[in-house]
């Protein structure tokens, strides 16, 4: 009885701790993310539309809205605003978040790697050196 009471008390605490440790609370490293971005460059680049759309200006942009890039219908209609939270969910499992996307990629399951990549994407998104004419 006593143990079950402790469990009832501790369960919400454990839930709060797990939330605190969730991916959204990890601090991403742009430098580490730059290394992870090497795995994206078969299809993406910061400043150019390639097989995938460019990443300049990504943060705050609506999904499927880069001019000159031909998106899947699914991505055009997804109506996602890209930010840390939406990118975190999408990059974990693109095909689950946007079924029908042409980004046929299993996703990055490691929370820290995702946060690092997002930190890099954010640094690139606003980079005047790379993205001044490519947003």
């Amino acid at each position: 009885m006593y143990n079950s009471e402790i469990s009832l008390v501790l369960a919400p605490v454990a839930f709060i701790i797990s939330l605190a440790a969730s991916s959204n609370c990890l601090e991403g490293s742009p430098e580490a993310g730059n290394q992870i971005y090497a795995s994206c460059i078969a299809c993406h680049s910061p400043e150019r539309n390639r097989t995938g759309p460019r990443h300049c200006g990504l943060f705050g942009r609506k999904s499927g809205s880069v001019s000159g890039f031909e998106y899947s219908t699914a991505m055009r209609e997804a109506s996602i605003i890209w930010n840390t939270e939406t990118l975190d969910r999408f990059l974990e499992s693109p095909l689950t978040i946007v079924p029908g996307t042409t980004m046929g990629f299993a996703g990055i399951k490691d929370d820290k790697k995702r946060q690092d990549l997002i930190a890099y994407l954010k640094s690139v998104s606003d980079s005047p050196g790379i993205c001044v004419n490519n947003r």
């Binding site: 090497a38 795995s39 994206c40 460059i41 046929g104």
Partner: peptide, 17 residues
């Protein structure tokens, strides 16, 4: 080399799906 490395990642990411 960068493109080839990226391609390896792309196929690695596609294989499971």
């Amino acid at each position: 080399a960068g493109l080839e490395r990226g391609a390896v990642s792309a196929y690695a990411g596609a294989i499971p799906v």
